[in-house]
């Protein structure tokens, strides 16, 4: 089966740079599944999971990204993400604690952080896409 090369870049470093069988990215208007020879798309991202699959549709890695962009062309898929965590690095209890602290805040920035933290929890809870 064909592969598509996938880059995950944050401002600080290159996190993933390899061939993949399929990638699912959280586009602003809904999740986008990217297979090799996908048509050209430029989309912004919402906070959510980026799932990377190998050639046999086995899950290689999953990341959580907060905001960013994805550029897709037939050979390459590039995710530019502002904040990236590996899903396995996220700790549910500390995020829940963070949510509790943020819920009291009224400023715009704390609301934004709250939304991100909540989507982190949602991402941790969901088992979607884990097995195809």
């Amino acid at each position: 089966m064909a592969t598509i090369s996938f880059d995950l870049v944050s401002p600080e470093q290159l996190l993933f740079n390899d061939e993949a069988g399929m990638i699912i990215v959280p586009g602003k208007d809904g999740d986008i599944g990217v297979l090799p020879r996908h048509s050209k798309v430029l989309s912004s991202l919402r906070p959510g999971r980026v799932m990377v699959y190998g050639e046999n549709k086995n899950l290689l890695k999953s990341f959580f990204v907060t905001r960013g962009f994805v550029e897709i062309n037939p050979e390459k898929c590039i995710v530019l993400a502002e904040g990236v965590n590996e899903m396995s690095d996220l700790d549910k209890s500390s995020i829940q604690q963070q949510i509790q602290e943020l819920e009291s805040g009224a400023s715009d920035s704390s609301k934004e952080e709250l939304a991100i933290a909540q989507s982190k929890i949602a991402a941790l809870d969901s088992t979607f896409y884990e097995k195809l």
């Binding site: 586009g27 602003k28 986008i32 050209k40 430029l42 989309s43 912004s44 962009f69």
Partner: peptide, 22 residues
């Protein structure tokens, strides 16, 4: 070399508005 057109999601202006501050 590669002049085919991108599909923009949601649309060009929204992406541009996200992209500029970043």
């Amino acid at each position: 070399k590669d002049n085919s057109i991108y599909i923009y999601e949601p649309d060009e202006e929204t992406i541009l508005k996200d992209l500029l501050p970043k």
